[in-house]
Design a protein around this nucleic acid. Structure first.
Lengths: 209, 209
DNA sequence: ACCTGAACACCGTTCAAGT
DNA sequence: ACCTGAACACCGTTCAAGT
């Protein structure tokens, strides 16, 4: 590998690429250094620890230079941003894992937050409610990416159905009566949209209009 | 440490205790074997791999022998189960981390699912909608535990406020105008309840009554 | 100033050998 | 049958030394 001039940014970018390619568990200081063609300890000249490298990785993943101005009804805008956030996180699953393990200390990555919050304020929510409602949607989107099977919908469905098949109908009457419905709800675009619309209805109840 | 007769169950229970005490990252085959007073490789007589041990750990964490019959209005029951699930997960944070990293293959841990699904069916939702609505609440509860700061509410608030302080009010007008509200929404019981009620309102819209 | 090999204290797991 | 030490291929990080 050609040795370019290293910077915090170029190292973080290489780490993100490694992680997108091979998964978070494949990221080690030794392997990253290897791929960059330097000694392992060289990285410690740029980052005090692996944790600090992961922070920089999170930062480098967000490169939206400008906050776009969205047009349209608040509800439509909220759906667009939530969908975009989900798609983005599913293309970089390691970000969700890192986010679950360590808090964010840096600014940036607030673009989606800003856009959703604007939409919620436009919906007529108070500042307090807009902040809370945003957090609910945020939690849902991150939770969806983190806790939904990433395999094919087909595989996920088969897994859920076989898990439910082991349940005693006498003690689990509800679940045992609906294996197919539960399997369909385990993952996928339709399920994501269902939850999003459900939450937006809950928000609409709170919105003055 | 006194060497008792080892079984898959007793090893899994010891692993859960270790993880509750010192965190998931402290769980290694070597250390667990040490605490049990046996050689590391002994554990491989009971589990093919660490992954299999983690599966057994998840199983051993759920020891609800009976599914209780809850009384009352569906909405009230759903709130109770969601609160209970959250409290349980926050007392065993490692379970959430494991759940994010590997799929479940075992039955059990379906008690909360059954109870919530029953409540949703009682609310008048179709099987399909009950399954989907359950998944939304499940995603929210797990997401809340996984992605909310576990530190004191005070510490979390200070962190959020300082992160927002670095934002340019010209590009982030909404967020910059409400640091306190955003900080209050970052974690805590009130925020959890807000999201829960919001989702229940969304469910109520879908419920026939 | 910048880089880095050796070393330390860890990992999960395979293999061969002990009882 | 049941258990396990040694070994292999890894970790993150400290320290001292190289240029």
């Amino acid at each position: 590998m050609v040795t370019k001039t290293l910077t915090r940014e170029s190292i973080a970018a290489a780490a993100l690429e490694l992680v997108d390619r091979d998964g978070l568990e494949a990221l080690s200081m030794r392997r990253l250094a290897d791929e960059l063609g330097v000694g392992t300890m060289t990285l410690y000249g740029y980052f005090r620890s692996k944790t600090e490298l992961l922070e920089a990785l999170m930062d480098s993943a967000v490169t939206v230079p400008e906050v776009p101005t969205l047009e349209g009804h608040w509800r439509e805008r909220l759906v667009l941003v939530a969908r975009g956030l989900r798609a983005y996180l599913e293309s970089h699953p390691a970000l969700v894992q890192i986010r679950a393990q360590q808090r964010l200390t840096r600014p940036r990555q607030f673009v989606a937050t800003e856009l959703m919050t604007r939409a919620l304020l436009d919906a007529g929510l108070s500042r307090e409610e807009a902040a809370r409602a945003f957090r609910v949607v945020f939690t849902y989107v991150f939770g969806f990416v983190a806790f939904s099977p990433t395999t094919t919908a087909d595989v996920a469905r088969r897994e859920v159905r076989s898990a439910l098949a082991g349940l005693d109908p006498a003690t689990y009457p509800a679940l045992a009566s609906m294996p197919d419905e539960a399997a369909a709800a385990a993952a996928g675009d339709e399920q994501f949209e269902y939850g999003l619309e459900l939450m937006l209805d809950g928000i609409e109840v709170r919105a003055a209009h």
